[in-house]
């Protein structure tokens, strides 16, 4: 696929942000951010520390309401929708710091996602679906264990499985590779690809550049709350402005 055609012409937008801004007191954490996320696409958001990536993700997932701007999920305006409505509209999120329900078993954790993320589903059905997901994410053997007994990688799988259980159209991943060893990160990359191949669009924030290179169809680079560049991994890493923003971490960029 050539750089210019990184977005297939036939693709439909799933998530669309229009001039999103968020101010905290006098600080403009996110300023006029617009982007379109297409169906079936893996979109990465990168940028130096403090660029506003996490704030952006919180705006998308509903932790914050934007000061100005609009946000659409397919045809629905979800700018001011509470988190649970975003979930029902098809937005899933996995947290950077895993947050399993500690007193539940692994299976129960995923059941919650299946049960409340979809409308009109009954408990036995939700349990069944949850078990399917545990198999898909390689956690089936741990189904009956307490969630707080898992290793970090297993926790991250659980986090993803739980988000998938809500049957999202778009999955937001917040630095899910953080803290993983290289071999584990490779497994996680495979997992994310598998999710995309099942028809779910993925938007992720990531610091680890090799992961971005391997996974992302398209990259949005943020700096100081604004979008600095957008394009394929090759395009943005060749962009002198992006290199300047990472100031001296050029080596890291190309690692």
């Amino acid at each position: 696929m050539s750089a210019a055609q990184s977005v297939p012409a036939s693709a439909l937008p799933v998530l669309r942000a229009e001039n999103l801004s968020k101010r905290f007191g006098g600080l403009n954490a996110v300023q006029n951010v617009s982007f379109t996320h297409y169906a079936g696409e893996i979109l990465a958001v990168i940028g130096p520390n403090g660029a506003g990536k996490t704030t952006l993700l919180n705006l998308l997932s509903g932790v914050y309401r934007p000061s100005t701007g609009r946000l659409w999920l397919q045809e629905q305006d979800i700018t001011n929708a509470p988190m649970e409505r975003r979930c029902h509209a098809g937005l899933g999120r996995a947290f950077q710091i895993v947050r399993p329900f500690p007193e539940m078993t692994v299976h129960e954790n995923v059941t919650v996602g299946a049960l409340f993320g979809q409308r009109g589903i009954r408990l036995p059905q939700a349990r069944e679906q949850a078990y399917d997901l545990l198999e898909r994410t390689g956690l089936a053997a741990h189904a009956d264990r307490a969630a707080h007994e898992l290793t970090l990688l297993q926790d991250k799988r659980l986090e993803v499985a739980r988000a998938l259980a809500t049957q999202p159209r778009v999955l937001l991943l917040d630095e899910v590779m953080a803290g993983l060893r290289p071999a584990e990160a490779q497994e996680a990359v495979e997992l994310v690809r598998g999710i995309r191949d099942s028809g779910i669009s993925i938007l992720f924030i990531e610091h680890i550049m090799p992961v971005v290179r391997d996974l992302a169809d398209r990259v949005v680079v943020m700096d100081q709350g604004q979008v600095l560049a957008e394009g394929t991994y090759r395009e943005v890493t060749a962009n002198p402005q992006v290199v300047a923003a990472y100031l001296g971490t050029e080596a890291g960029l190309h690692a």
Partner: peptide, 24 residues
């Protein structure tokens, strides 16, 4: 019932519960 899962989820992580679609 469903209530049990909703209650337990809210108790153990209210925000996470909302992200997963629980109408808190």
């Amino acid at each position: 019932s469903k209530l049990h899962h909703a209650f337990a989820a809210i108790r153990q992580g209210e925000e996470t519960a909302r992200v997963l679609g629980v109408n808190v």
